[in-house]
């Protein structure tokens, strides 16, 4: 088991390095840097000026070296004139060149400076991430029990009317992306034009003060899309368990249907959905970005859109690290959890 986890961890770190390198390359392409230079210094710079501006800041070095510096395994770029260091990438606003160390990458905790928000990337991510964590907490609170109940109810009697109805409902929710359900919810439930005006169509106020009116719609929008998939997986797992030999034995013994479902089938049926729920987390990230944009909730997804839309390279890199790590860690947890939960799998 220890070896299995260790090997998974190794693959995970390798994947993380590859992915961050790809993101780093894609965000540090020539046109991006040119835009950055014009944005930071002077919009009317000539091409020569752009090149010298980038040269002076070490942007024109080979990609691998830049990546190493950003990661913090190579000493950062410094420019010397007449034997004196006049520029150091490690010197952030507030620190002098002398104080700055020579390594200042992600590993040293220096995630860079956001050009859009004019703040430390790490600090922005902390604040925004906390908002999204609150959103995700409520989404999980709605989605997981809802999906499990729907799945178990549908799966306990395969082919019944209830199964048909609930399966169609699950298909319906998986066919409704967040930007469709969000639009429909807002127009039907939060607009004075059509239906009752029960909720607020914007979650902006929810950042300080979560209320039923301003948080229900965003949570419901994300939860619905993820729910259908988990419910279908739960249903498949439940129907499989219900045809197992030991369930038949229980039925022949005369155990009541309720007892069979609750005591015999449920525990075994919930192993597979655990993996699915964990793997669903990265998919929720998509939903988070869409919903935060639609409902104007300034969280992690909103930050991603702002960073990408405004060529904020270091912030975008920070956002990518977080999302890639979230994806990989959930994959790891689901793998390990599956082995722990399922006694039939034993890995030496």
């Amino acid at each position: 088991m220890g070896l299995f986890i260790l090997r998974r961890l190794g693959v995970m770190i390798l994947t993380a390095l590859c992915l961050t390198f790809i993101v780093f390359t894609l965000t540090n392409l020539e046109p991006n840097l040119e835009k950055l230079a014009k944005n930071q210094a002077n919009a009317r710079m000539t091409d020569d000026q752009v090149i010298s501006w980038l040269d002076n800041r070490g942007y024109n070095d080979p990609m691998l070296i830049k990546y190493g510096r950003w990661l913090g395994v190579l000493p950062h770029f410094t420019r010397e004139e007449d034997g004196e260091v006049v520029y150091s990438r490690c010197a952030t606003p507030g620190t002098t060149i002398e104080e700055a160390g020579s390594f200042c990458g992600v590993l040293q905790g220096n995630w860079g400076w956001s050009t859009v928000f004019q703040n430390e990337v790490l600090e922005i991510l902390g604040v925004r991430g906390w908002q999204t964590a609150k959103l995700m907490f409520f989404v999980m609170l709605v989605m997981v029990p809802g999906a499990l109940i729907v799945g178990v109810l549908a799966g306990m009697k395969e082919g019944s009317k209830l199964d048909r109805s609930l399966s169609t409902f699950s298909i319906g929710t998986t066919a409704t992306p967040e930007y469709v359900s969000g639009v429909i919810f807002i127009s039907l439930l939060a607009s004075p034009m059509i239906g009752p005006n029960w909720f607020v169509g914007s979650a902006q106020t929810a950042m300080d003060n979560i209320t039923f009116e301003n948080f229900t719609l965003p949570v419901l929008t994300i939860a619905l899309y993820g729910m259908g998939y988990i419910a279908r997986m739960t249903r498949a797992s439940m129907t499989e368990v219900m045809t197992a030999q030991y369930i038949r034995t229980a039925r022949l013994k005369g155990v009541s249907f309720q007892q069979i479902v609750l005591k015999h089938a449920l525990r075994n049926a919930l192993i597979a959905p655990f993996t699915v729920i964990m793997l669903q987390l990265p998919w929720l990230l998509n939903g988070v970005v869409i919903v935060e944009t639609l409902f104007n909730f300034k969280g992690f997804g909103w930050t991603l859109v702002q960073a990408a839309g405004n060529n904020d390279i270091e912030l975008l890199l920070g956002v990518s690290i977080i999302s890639v790590v979230v994806v990989l860690v959930t994959q790891l947890i689901s793998d390990i959890g599956y082995v722990f939960l399922n006694p039939r799998i034993r890995i030496a």
């Binding site: 994947t15 590859c18 993101v23 835009k35 990230l285 970005v289 869409i290 991603l304 956002v319 999302s323």
Partner: peptide, 29 residues
Amino acid sequence: SFMANLILAFPVILLFYLLVTPEIVLTGL
């Protein structure tokens, strides 16, 4: 499989934002 997992581990929206920008079109990617 490693390469497939690499792409699958990317959040789709992030990938779109990285790939579908005017700057990327300029590089010919």
